[in-house]
Design a protein around this nucleic acid. Structure first.
Length: 496
RNA sequence: GGUCCUGUGGCCGAGUGGCUAGGCAGAGCUCUGCAAAAGCUCGUACAGCGGUUCGAAUCCGCUCGGGACCUCCA
């Protein structure tokens, strides 16, 4: 049983074999910090966070590099309307690094909320201008780029004559040549398919760096090539990102790196699919994004309520990463309820005492549990089938609850299976899938008060003073605190 | 227009030719002072039409619908 990934480069499911035994280098395209992250952005970062976590679970030492794109030609989200009113003053006042800082901070905050681990290295494009210039110089020296008016373009046709340009994205060179779309700034290119390595900065452009070709800023693909090479080497294991980056971004990266490093940069190319809303991709071009801050707070007309970051994480993991995932309030609310049930069962399991029965009272149940747990690894190895792992977990939920309610004896499972059950659930839920308790931990004082209330409720209940016992429960419920009478006579407390 | 993906029960979603995915919602039952949970049982779904096969949601063809990329985009 070995780990397999669907490799976009070969369009096949392949056994994962790292270039260096025991080590994995992984590069994931990070955000452009010119605006706030939206729900769609959550998907790759959660997907590759799970890849990262799973590789570590398998014992690999992983270097995970995820960049921040803070260079290039961009303007702050929503500034356009303002610009029309006071274009000049806004441009004069806008300090690019201020904008970049603001959105980088927001992005980091969102990643933390979603419980994504920090990458090993998070390089910024502005911090690697020198490396990018060096790479461009090399491409020119090799004869695969040309300079026009202070801008440098990659010669796609020359490259395509010798290398399989378009292999990753399934593009045919002839088609690219036919698609002569009239776009601004194209006239400098020899061919419309050529892409910029360096752009000359017009006088009003604020972000600018000196280069052998004059003041300007790097092209849109070179940063990833430069930073991946610097931190992961000429060849590394995994390159990840959204499917929409397949072309032209990753195709261009391959071309640039192939010229400089004589290698296709990554062995395995992994791409997550899009999050859609009403069947349409959530993205800039459609103006249908829901920002993560809005998702969490509920502050968006499309949202019936706010959704906890863990609900969003769970929602995303319930689908295979290469399928589209359609957003809807119904789907999010279903995920919310499902996660709650799963997590409550997990809490029960954690507290379940381990007995010392070597053999199972119910061998059939024992076997069933063992099989379901064993499949976790199998499913993850099969191109990261998190949805199936979660499905198995849901099949295990009734087992846990039945033991709690006494329908099944704990000793129906052998000691060994029960221990495996506890450890596997804990490792998978918290370490591999990266889920965590939704409810905020309360300070000791509140817990003390609640325990006192529970005690009082128990007392008055035994005296059949239901008016008082119901009052306690109902009033607390209004505050979002839920008291439940358990089968064993205890009262459990949870928060909405 | 080109390239590619996709169409599963009320909703969301797994599905590797044969064996009930799972979640949410819904119905019934059990437990319970009542609640709320929880447990058990229930849906015989695979866009349509053909074909291959002993057997297809799964393979092939056509038709219809949806989408992605070709431009910044996760």
């Amino acid at each position: 049983m070995s780990l397999k990934f669907h490799n976009s480069y070969t369009r096949k499911k392949e056994v994962f074999e790292p270039l260096t035994a025991g080590h994995v280098g992984m590069y994931v395209c990070g955000p452009t910090v010119s605006g706030e992250s939206h729900l769609g952005h959550a998907r790759p970062y959660i997907t590759f966070d799970v890849v990262y976590r799973y590789l570590m679970y398998l014992g690999y030492k992983v270097r995970y590099v995820r960049n921040i794109t803070d260079a290039g030609h961009f303007e702050e989200e929503g500034r356009e309307a303002e610009d029309k009113i006071a274009k000049k003053s806004v441009i004069e006042k806008l300090e690019p690094m201020e904008l970049v800082q603001k959105y980088t901070n927001l992005y980091h905050w969102a990643m933390l909320q979603l419980n994504n681990l920090e990458p090993s290295i998070e390089p910024t494009a502005t911090g690697h201008i020198i490396e990018q210039i060096e790479m461009i110089k090399q491409i020119i020296a090799e004869g695969y780029a040309y300079e026009v008016n202070g801008s440098v373009y990659f010669d796609v046709k020359k490259y395509a004559d010798e290398y399989p340009y378009g292999k990753l994205s399934g593009r045919v060179m002839e088609d690219l040549l036919e698609n002569t779309r009239e776009l601004e700034g194209q006239e400098e290119k020899r061919l419309s398919a050529d892409f910029a390595l360096w752009k000359a900065a017009p006088p009003e452009h604020i972000q600018r760096w000196a280069s052998p070709w004059g003041d300007g800023f790097p092209g849109w693909h070179i940063e990833c090539s430069a930073m991946a090479t610097k931190y992961l080497g000429k060849q590394f294991d995994i390159h990840g990102g959204g499917m929409d980056l397949l072309f032209p971004h990753h195709e261009s990266e391959i071309a640039q790196s192939t010229i400089c490093n004589k290698h296709v940069p990554a062995k395995y190319w992994l791409h997550n699919n899009m999050i859609t809303i009403n069947g349409r991709k959530m993205g800039k071009s459609y103006n249908n994004q829901i920002r993560l801050t809005e998702m969490f707070s509920g502050g968006h007309p499309m949202l019936e309520k706010g959704y906890h970051p863990m609900t969003i994480r769970f929602f995303i993991l319930q689908t295979h990463y290469r399928s589209t995932l359609d957003f809807s309030n119904e789907a999010l609310q279903a995920a919310e309820k499902g996660l709650k049930r799963l997590w409550e069962a997990y809490e029960v399991l954690k507290k379940m005492p381990v007995h010392d029965a070597e053999s199972a009272g119910d061998p059939e149940l024992d076997k069933k549990v063992e099989t379901l747990l064993g499949e976790f690894d199998e499913f993850m190895n099969d191109d990261l089938s998190t949805a199936k792992v979660l499905a198995n977990m849901f099949e295990l939920v009734p087992v846990i609850n039945s033991i709690k309610d006494g329908h099944i004896q704990a000793k129906a499972m052998s000691k060994k299976t029960l221990e495996l059950f506890k450890s596997k659930m804990s490792v998978y839920l918290e370490e591999v899938l990266g889920l965590k308790n939704e409810m905020q931990q309360d300070d000791g004082k509140l817990n003390g008060v609640l325990e006192l209330l529970a005690e009082i409720r128990k007392e008055v209940k035994s005296k059949k003073d239901y008016a008082t016992s119901d009052k306690i429960r109902n009033q607390l419920h209004r505050m979002g605190i839920i008291m439940k009478d358990e089968k064993d006579g205890n009262i459990s407390i949870s928060f909405e």
